[in-house]
Computed example of a mutant assay.
Amino acid sequence: MKTMEDYRALQISSLELMKSCTCIIMTDTSNYKAHGTGVFVHIGGHYFLVSAAHVLERHGEFFIFLSQEYEIIKPGGDTYINRTEDREKDTIDIAVLRLDADCLPHILRSYSFLQAEDLAINHIFQNEEFYTFLGYPATRAKVLYKTDIFDVTTFFHFTAPLHSEKYAGFGSNPHVNVMVAYNKKSAYDSRKGTFGTGPDLYGISGCGLWFTDPLDLKTGIIRPKLVAIMTDWSIKNRNIIIGTRIDVVTGMIKKFLDIDFPDSSIVTVS
């Protein structure tokens, strides 16, 4: 009989796959300041960096970390962004950068890209800890003491979506957004394999929320699905982070580019 421990092990086994397509986005080369997180996606022959709009709207200023030897790149390409007059009140907060041919080979040396089948559109959220988010908190990015090594550590957290009746109080829409719990006092430390106090979440904007199907226990398949991009650590309640469904991301891409990808039955991007 499979237990919750077996399921947790399956989620933890997914960590390397998630890390391989997740990057830290930085803005200051003098002290390597963390600005946000991004996820790499490949759809219809195009290669994208997906993140929060408030992160990618600084395109041309930010750079992506490639290696601990201070190798970085400013990614070029076309940005498709959710425009708003007031970013603070933007409940979508999503942008997509289509990477150009100059930067792509360098990024491919350090990262992998999710494929279309890894994106779980039309996902029905379950109020169980079948989900994880993985990003780069600003406090986990630093130059190691007395070295020239820039140490970047991801943060990986087990979580469950909140019930839909809680959304209205945060200006969120369950057809567009997802709200999940952050239990800072019981956070998983992937470096030690133990639970303890987690970090502040500044810097994780643009990270992925992933679903690990319990049915995968039968096959042992390690194939988490990207269900949302997380954009906001709620000021009203620090135990909650808010994201936007991946359906909105694929809808934005289809709006601007002619790609063969299924339509969402949950949300339509106009």
Rank of each mutant, 00 (worst) to 15 (best):
Cys21Asn: 15
Pro199Ala: 11
Phe65Lys: 14
Met18Trp: 02
Pro137Glu: 01
Ile81Tyr: 06
Ile73Gly: 07
Val39Lys: 02
Ala141Ser: 09
Val178Ala: 07
Phe261Trp: 09
Asp216Val: 07
Ala52Glu: 03
Asp118His: 00
Tyr131Arg: 00
Lys33Glu: 14
Tyr32Glu: 12
Thr244His: 10
Thr231Ala: 15
Leu257Cys: 13
Phe170Leu: 04
Ile259Met: 01
Tyr167Leu: 10
Leu97Cys: 05
His106Cys: 08
Gly220Glu: 13
Thr153Val: 07
Val180Leu: 15
Ser164Trp: 06
Ile81Ala: 05
Ala138Pro: 07
Gly196Val: 02
Lys255Arg: 03
Ile204Ser: 04
Ile92Leu: 11
Thr139Lys: 01
Glu61Tyr: 01
Thr268Lys: 14
Gly45Asn: 05
Arg87Val: 10
Lys89Leu: 09
Pro224Met: 01
Asn122Gly: 03
Ala181Ile: 10
Phe130Met: 11
Ala168Pro: 10
Met4Glu: 15
Glu165Lys: 05
Leu201Cys: 12
Ile121Ala: 03
His42Ile: 09
Gly171Glu: 07
Asp263Leu: 01
Pro214His: 05
Leu114Pro: 07
Leu17Gln: 08
Ile107Met: 01
Asp28Cys: 14
Ile64Arg: 06
Ile149Tyr: 04
Gly44Thr: 12
Ser186Val: 13
Gly36Thr: 04
Tyr7Asn: 00
His163Lys: 14
Thr22Asn: 07
Tyr70Cys: 15
Thr197Ser: 09
Met4Lys: 07
Val269Met: 08
Val152Glu: 15
Glu71Thr: 14
Phe158Asn: 12
Thr231Cys: 06
Ile124Gly: 15
Arg58Val: 06
Glu85Gln: 07
Glu117Pro: 08
Ile92Trp: 04
Tyr47Ile: 04
Arg223Asn: 11
Leu99Phe: 02
Leu99Ser: 02
Thr22Met: 04
Ala101Met: 01
Lys225Leu: 05
Phe211Gln: 00
Pro214Met: 01
Ala168Lys: 10
Ile107Gly: 07
Ile107Asp: 02
Lys218Asn: 14
Tyr70Thr: 14
Asp247Ile: 02
Tyr7Leu: 00
Lys74His: 09
Asp100Cys: 06
Ala116Met: 04
Tyr111Arg: 11
Gln68Leu: 05
Val41Tyr: 08
Lys2Leu: 04
Thr139Trp: 03
Gly77Thr: 04
Phe156Pro: 05
Tyr32Leu: 08
Ile25Gln: 13
Leu10Ser: 04
Thr91Asn: 12
Gly243Cys: 04
Lys192Glu: 15
Thr194Arg: 00
Gly171His: 01
Thr3Ala: 00
Thr231Gly: 01
Glu5Tyr: 08
His106Tyr: 10
Arg58Leu: 05
Thr27Ala: 11
Phe63Ser: 10
Tyr7Ser: 06
Thr268Cys: 02
Glu165His: 09
Glu128Gln: 13
